[in-house]
Design a protein around this nucleic acid. Structure first.
Lengths: 126, 126
DNA sequence: CAGAATCCTGAATGATACTG
DNA sequence: CAGTATCATTCAGGATTCTG
């Protein structure tokens, strides 16, 4: 099957499926949290430390959404002080390869894109 | 190289590279426009017709950003009435495979995700 | 430690009307 | 036909404070 015929995966149903998934992973932090949890269970504070710039609030929200969607598991231990561990589920792990495909594309083309952007600015703002 | 070692592609530089690209493609319409232009040059109105729900304003903005980033080329013909054709550049075409990888993941896992989401709702809103 | 609650701002999107 | 210009709305995300 050609690439052309595949784009129906994106355009099918007016883009609702792709939208559902983009809504999941395209916020500011989700992909970073998933990548950070790759191959390691982490506590809330450790995640917070390993993701520079994220606020407590956004880390909480991001983890809740990932948990809700079944990409991340949350394990709370009845201890004092409390201990909570987060880890990827099988579904969560399965997101890594396509995410890497995208990251690879980004790395490969970011120079071209930024050059094009710079040239565009020059043209429109003399 | 293992998948684990690869996630540095996402986490490297605090996620700035992946952010740059997510900022490009994660708005509501970009990926849909790119997929629609796959294998065909289209005029503004044709694009507008082929992408249900998009407003003129958002189509314009999306195309401008794509053009600015060098993913889409814009060709204006000096005719009356005006004719403008949009097409993917080589860089734009190169985005299709990773986008399809993501779409494939979405299709494969959307049922699980929505089930998990439904179960989560039931749990938290009795 | 692992969060919840609240307030606030800018940016993305949409609706509508106008134009070379 | 291919846009531009304005206005209104919504909401993601950040800062801050409080708590079991």
């Amino acid at each position: 099957m050609s690439q052309y015929e595949h784009t129906c995966m994106i355009r099918g149903d007016g883009g609702r499926t792709i939208r559902t998934i983009l809504d999941r992973i395209c916020d500011k932090w989700t992909l970073l949290v998933v990548a950070t949890l790759d191959q390691q269970r982490l506590r809330f504070t450790d995640l917070h430390r390993q993701i520079p710039g994220i606020s407590q609030r956004m880390l909480t929200l991001t983890l809740r959404n990932l948990e809700r969607d079944g990409l991340v598991s949350r394990t709370a231990y009845a201890e004092v002080p409390p201990r909570v561990e987060y880890a990827l589920t099988a579904t969560g792990r399965s997101l890594i390869p396509p995410a890497l495909a995208l990251a690879g594309w980004a790395i490969e083309h970011i120079a071209d894109i930024e050059a094009s952007r710079a040239a565009y600015e020059t043209r429109s703002a003399p």
